[in-house]
């Protein structure tokens, strides 16, 4: 099969209260891609994911998963997709093991095989010791891992994770990243949403940025960052300054007496900036990017509407 893992055309969604959450989404995801779906709160990420996973009904548009229409070929489409939702959606009174076993059952996996797979995914997610307790006894990060384990039980070819690392500690996050990379390497297409842009930058090869129900940017991470024509740097000076120095066509702001914020566009060079600073006798102790580059791009893109 050469079909795309996911293809979305003109997807619109108006909720029953009249709110239009999606306003014509177009998005293609190739087989084996690792895509980050980024966007501010309320942009429409979860709505899009909900429609792909048949939890939300679309108002119009087309969604195909591995070439199959999500409404006309429901059953095979659903077999391909594994979902880790943004909000906890299991019965907290059920034992951990049963939650995963039942999910296997809904996919028609016979009990014996289900038990084998459940043991495997629970061990993989570090939840084996907790399997007999009810899900309510898990910590927040463990609950999230439980949802990942559950999503893997039927070996999906397209794994969709809606903010899987929210509320997960640093160490576990790293191991989750490693796990996701490995899963992707084994051929599984992954779509993930996150508000940690460094996560998107380090994990994903492509990024789609969604804002107010539309995709405003989509492409390989490196291309997008290449589009960034201005970067903001923060400089710490040795001596206190009274006002922001005049630096010609470098926009500059004095944040506090020893901290300057300077925007440098691609047309300029950092060398010239330092020359101008030295001429005025300003010594710079250290310098850093104000934001990570993807973050900068993101803010510029979603700021456009004057939010």
């Amino acid at each position: 099969m050469t079909e795309r893992a996911l293809s979305i055309e003109g997807l619109r969604k108006t909720y029953s209260n009249g709110f239009q959450a999606l306003d014509g989404i177009y998005l293609d995801v190739e087989r084996g891609d690792f895509v980050a779906l980024l966007g501010p709160n309320g942009a429409g990420k979860s709505t899009t994911i909900g429609i792909i996973c048949s939890l939300i009904t679309k108002s119009s548009g087309n969604v195909k998963v591995f070439g199959m229409d999500i409404e006309r070929q429901r059953s095979p489409v659903r077999r391909c997709i594994g979902l880790v939702p943004q909000e906890f959606n299991f019965n907290i009174f059920e034992p951990v093991e049963e939650i995963v076993l039942n999910q296997a059952g809904y996919y028609g996996i016979p009990r014996r095989e289900a038990r084998r797979r459940t043991a495997a995914v629970l061990q993989q997610m570090g939840l084996w010791e907790k399997r007999r307790g009810s899900a309510r006894e898990l910590s927040g990060g463990m609950k999230r891992r439980l949802m990942i384990a559950r999503a893997l039980i039927h070996k999906p070819q397209l794994l969709i994770l809606d903010e899987p690392t929210a509320g997960v500690d640093l160490e576990i996050r790293r191991s989750m990243w490693e796990f996701l990379r490995e899963t992707n390497r084994s051929g599984v297409t992954i779509i993930l949403t996150t508000h940690y842009l460094e996560e998107a930058e380090s994990l994903c090869d492509r990024v789609a940025i969604i804002d107010r129900g539309r995709i405003v940017e989509h492409g390989p991470v490196s291309d997008l960052i290449g589009k960034l024509d201005v970067e903001t740097f923060v400089l710490n000076t040795r001596a206190p300054l009274r006002r922001a120095p005049a630096l010609g066509d470098y926009p500059v702001r004095l944040l506090d007496s020893r901290t300057l914020e300077v925007e440098i566009s691609r047309r300029h060079s950092i060398n010239v900036l330092f020359e101008r600073l030295s001429v005025q006798g300003i010594q710079v102790l250290s310098m850093r990017n104000k934001a990570n580059r993807l973050e900068e791009l993101f803010l510029r893109l979603v700021d456009r509407g004057g939010r």
């Binding site: 429901r74 659903r78 299991f90 059920e94 939650i99 996919y107």
Partner: peptide, 18 residues
């Protein structure tokens, strides 16, 4: 109704079960 309330109904809705 509890399944709706806990949203665990989603476990069934995303599955291939008719």
């Amino acid at each position: 109704y509890s399944a709706k309330f806990h949203r665990s109904i989603e476990e069934m809705l995303i599955s291939p079960m008719p």
